[in-house]
Amino acid sequence: MISDALYVTLRVPDPSALTALAALRLMGPKAPVRLERGRVWWVSGDPGAFESSQGVWFNPNKERGLRWNAAGGFGERRERERWVFVRDRSGSPEAGALRSMRERGLPEPLGLLSATVWRLQAPEGVSPDEAAQAASVVRSAFQGLLVNRHSQAHRVGPAPASLTELEQVLSELKREAS
């Protein structure tokens, strides 16, 4: 089945990511040296979904979307990087996009999955997995930040190497969240 993916970020430095990074730095030396926030979309069945319905996935005035590229994923791969995929246990990030597509008379994709992504780069001397664990799940006031497991599901791993891998991560996340 044909599938495609899109990674959406702000065109300007993301205030949420900057604030999160500053808060994480208060927590100690395992804090990432770089933190970026985005939203990833995965579709199947409609190879033109991202061309025909740009306004559904992002607002081009303030955001940019990077299409999946078979050779290099979403582009720049960073060393010591981990992706933290996050999905709220309530609600559906896909529902709004599907509603927008229906309103515009666009064909709905066969499959659609989405999640928030925090891309974090570990400091030298700290393993990327350790840095991701320290930054992700909130354990107390001074441990973790990006995920409250009581209301959010998450997955941590390297940048997805293929669309199949991305689909697998997003599917698992959706299952866990529901």
Binding site: P15, S16, T19, A20, A23, L26, M27, V138, A141, F142, L145, L146, N148, S151
Partner: peptide
């Protein structure tokens, strides 16, 4: 903090805690 990350999440890492 504009409820960045999640509502209350960044403030809850403050020294006041």
């Amino acid at each position: 903090y504009e409820d960045r990350v999640r509502a209350g999440a960044v403030a809850s890492r403050s020294e006041w805690m």
